[in-house]
Simulated assay, not measured.
Amino acid sequence: MSAAIASAVALALSYAGMAGLSLAMDRHHEQLTGQGEVPPARRRALRAAGSVLLVLALLACTRAWGATVGFTAWWGFLTAGGVLVAWLMAYRPRQSVASAGAALALGLFGGLALAMAG
């Protein structure tokens, strides 16, 4: 697995996962929808999807670099994804959702391509 491709996949999945987790919070959900509270079913779905995406990012990292280095790299990608989400939610909340969708597609497509190649 190419380290550069694995990095792009891990960053994209981390960003999309962090965006999903942030949208499960009332404050950020209200920013985008105007609804004061996240419906319970949507909250569970967003949390589950965000968590699965973060685990997929971990798998991409450990597959590319092994367990020790991959886990450390994953923490770095989690941090980068979280910072990107925090910045975009503060300044461009609507664009953060659109870019999270694009990152999700890129991450899943790239991850699938890596899985088929390896």
Rank of each mutant, 00 (worst) to 15 (best):
residue 1 M to H: 04
residue 1 M to I: 05
residue 2 S to D: 09
residue 3 A to M: 09
residue 4 A to R: 14
residue 6 A to T: 04
residue 6 A to H: 00
residue 6 A to K: 00
residue 7 S to K: 13
residue 7 S to E: 00
residue 7 S to D: 02
residue 7 S to N: 09
residue 8 A to E: 03
residue 9 V to F: 02
residue 9 V to P: 03
residue 11 L to E: 05
residue 11 L to K: 05
residue 11 L to S: 04
residue 12 A to G: 00
residue 12 A to V: 06
residue 14 S to G: 05
residue 16 A to I: 08
residue 19 A to D: 13
residue 19 A to Y: 13
residue 19 A to H: 10
residue 20 G to C: 15
residue 21 L to R: 15
residue 21 L to H: 14
residue 21 L to T: 14
residue 23 L to D: 02
residue 23 L to V: 08
residue 23 L to Q: 10
residue 25 M to S: 07
residue 25 M to G: 03
residue 26 D to L: 13
residue 27 R to N: 12
residue 29 H to A: 15
residue 31 Q to A: 15
residue 31 Q to T: 13
residue 31 Q to I: 10
residue 32 L to A: 11
residue 33 T to P: 04
residue 33 T to A: 11
residue 34 G to F: 15
residue 35 Q to D: 12
residue 35 Q to L: 14
residue 36 G to R: 15
residue 37 E to K: 06
residue 37 E to G: 02
residue 38 V to D: 09
residue 40 P to M: 12
residue 40 P to T: 09
residue 41 A to T: 10
residue 42 R to W: 11
residue 42 R to H: 09
residue 42 R to G: 00
residue 43 R to F: 01
residue 43 R to C: 01
residue 44 R to Y: 07
residue 45 A to V: 07
residue 45 A to R: 14
residue 45 A to I: 09
residue 45 A to W: 13
residue 45 A to H: 11
residue 47 R to E: 06
residue 48 A to G: 03
residue 48 A to H: 02
residue 48 A to K: 02
residue 51 S to L: 08
residue 53 L to Y: 06
residue 53 L to N: 01
residue 54 L to A: 06
residue 54 L to R: 09
residue 55 V to H: 04
residue 57 A to H: 05
residue 58 L to E: 02
residue 60 A to C: 05
residue 60 A to N: 04
residue 63 R to S: 11
residue 64 A to T: 03
residue 64 A to D: 04
residue 64 A to V: 02
residue 65 W to E: 05
residue 65 W to V: 14
residue 66 G to E: 12
residue 66 G to F: 08
residue 66 G to I: 07
residue 67 A to W: 09
residue 67 A to P: 02
residue 67 A to K: 10
residue 67 A to L: 13
residue 68 T to H: 10
residue 68 T to N: 10
residue 69 V to Q: 03
residue 71 F to L: 12
residue 72 T to N: 00
residue 72 T to E: 00
residue 73 A to L: 11
residue 73 A to E: 06
residue 74 W to M: 01
residue 75 W to Q: 01
residue 75 W to E: 00
residue 76 G to Q: 06
residue 76 G to W: 10
residue 77 F to Y: 11
residue 79 T to V: 08
residue 80 A to T: 06
residue 81 G to F: 04
residue 81 G to H: 05
residue 82 G to K: 04
residue 82 G to I: 02
residue 84 L to G: 02
residue 85 V to A: 07
residue 85 V to D: 01
residue 86 A to Y: 11
residue 86 A to K: 15
residue 86 A to E: 01
residue 89 M to F: 13
residue 90 A to K: 15
residue 90 A to W: 15
residue 92 R to M: 10
residue 94 R to L: 14
residue 95 Q to E: 15
residue 97 V to H: 14
residue 98 A to E: 12
residue 98 A to N: 10
residue 99 S to D: 02
residue 100 A to W: 15
residue 100 A to G: 02
residue 101 G to L: 08
residue 101 G to P: 09
residue 101 G to W: 01
residue 101 G to M: 07
residue 102 A to H: 00
residue 102 A to D: 00
residue 103 A to N: 06
residue 103 A to G: 03
residue 104 L to Q: 05
residue 105 A to P: 02
residue 105 A to M: 05
residue 105 A to N: 03
residue 107 G to Y: 06
residue 108 L to Y: 13
residue 108 L to F: 14
residue 109 F to C: 14
residue 110 G to T: 01
residue 111 G to R: 08
residue 111 G to E: 03
residue 112 L to Q: 06
residue 113 A to R: 13
residue 114 L to C: 08
residue 115 A to S: 05
residue 115 A to N: 01
residue 116 M to V: 12
residue 117 A to G: 00
